[in-house]
């Protein structure tokens, strides 16, 4: 028996939810906070029951209230997504039940799990108890297929909130978030100036990719910290990561080395980024990006 805390996105499910169900390996109960995504969850194979949890506390995120409202409904092992909200709910639920939480798990085999530590510079393997709460790294576990038809039960359950939203600030751009995107193209100081990021954006549009950046350009050119990849930025693990004009400092690698495929474009053949690149291109971006754009249009 496994309980999956659904990660929602707007009124629907975030794709990681199907991965949590996939990792559960069958007989999963899915809790949908605020009822969002309940019918979608019911259609995943391996789901035996969906509980649509409705309550006032779900109108905005409050980790303590969500954990308290959802906590009484869990049975067996609890799985949540290793996202900001998933981690917070899991931490509070674990502390309230007096059990451990293990975050950002990348493999599970029975009661043995492993996870990256030191920003991916090492991996640890842990034996967990049956009631340990786990959060799973997105894009790491195979998603459950469709074809399920679980019953949806609605439960009214709320809890006191300690926070209230005073102001919502829309994303500066409609661009994809680096942590959600399947392809990320990032630029570094080698791009020369913030204006040249338009060349990266054009490629990103061709690929349906998100645009990321190194800390050097975030700090020095005043770009949004929300697109910084690395130790003090976001950790990404897309299928494809393209680093352009990024040297590959250890703190940058910390945020992207677990990407499935890495392409590096750098004019310096000795740049450390080539050490992690599956495909390295020694060239300036001024030459390589137009060629990339052409090659992509010819696909």
């Amino acid at each position: 028996m496994v309980t999956v805390i659904a990660e929602t996105s707007g009124n629907g499910l975030h794709p990681v939810t199907a991965q949590l169900v996939g990792a559960a390996g069958g007989d999963a109960t899915v809790l949908c906070p605020g009822g969002n995504g309940a019918s979608e969850a019911a259609a995943l194979s391996g789901v035996s029951k969906v509980i649509s949890v409705e309550g006032d506390c779900f109108s905005s995120f409050d980790g303590g209230a969500w954990a308290s409202a959802l906590g009484s409904l869990t049975e067996g092992r609890v799985l949540a997504a290793s996202t900001a909200n998933g981690r917070e709910i899991a931490s509070r639920m674990a502390a309230s039940k007096g059990v451990a939480v293990v975050q950002d798990v990348t493999s599970i085999s029975g009661n043995t799990v492993s996870r990256p530590i030191y920003s991916g510079k090492a991996i640890e393997t842990i034996t967990v108890s049956d009631d340990t709460i786990l959060t799973l790294r997105p894009n790491t576990f195979a998603a459950a297929d469709g074809g399920g038809s679980a019953a949806v039960n609605t439960v009214n359950q709320s809890a006191d909130v300690a926070t209230s939203v005073k102001e919502a600030i829309a994303k500066a751009s409609e661009r994809l978030d680096v942590s959600d995107a399947d392809i990320v193209i990032s630029g570094g100081r080698g791009m020369g100036s913030i204006d040249n990021f338009s060349h990266l954006e054009a490629i990103a549009d061709q690929l349906g990719a998100a645009v990321g950046a190194s800390r050097a350009v975030v700090d020095e050119w005043g770009m949004s910290h929300s697109i910084q990849v690395g130790q003090t930025g976001k950790t990404v693990n897309p299928s494809l990561y393209i680093a352009v004009g990024i040297s590959g400092a250890i703190q940058h690698l910390a945020g992207m080395r677990s990407s499935k495929y890495i392409v590096a474009i750098n004019k310096d053949a000795d740049a450390p980024i080539f050490g992690v690149a599956d495909y390295g291109i020694v060239a300036t971006w001024e030459e390589a990006l137009p060629a990339l754009s052409d090659a992509l249009s010819n696909l």
Partner: peptide
């Protein structure tokens, strides 16, 4: 309620191709 079995270096990626 959990025990650390071991810590290990990350899996080495096969060397990439460079052009």
């Amino acid at each position: 309620s959990v025990t650390l079995d071991n810590q290990s270096p990350p899996a080495e990626k096969p060397a990439g191709q460079k052009f």
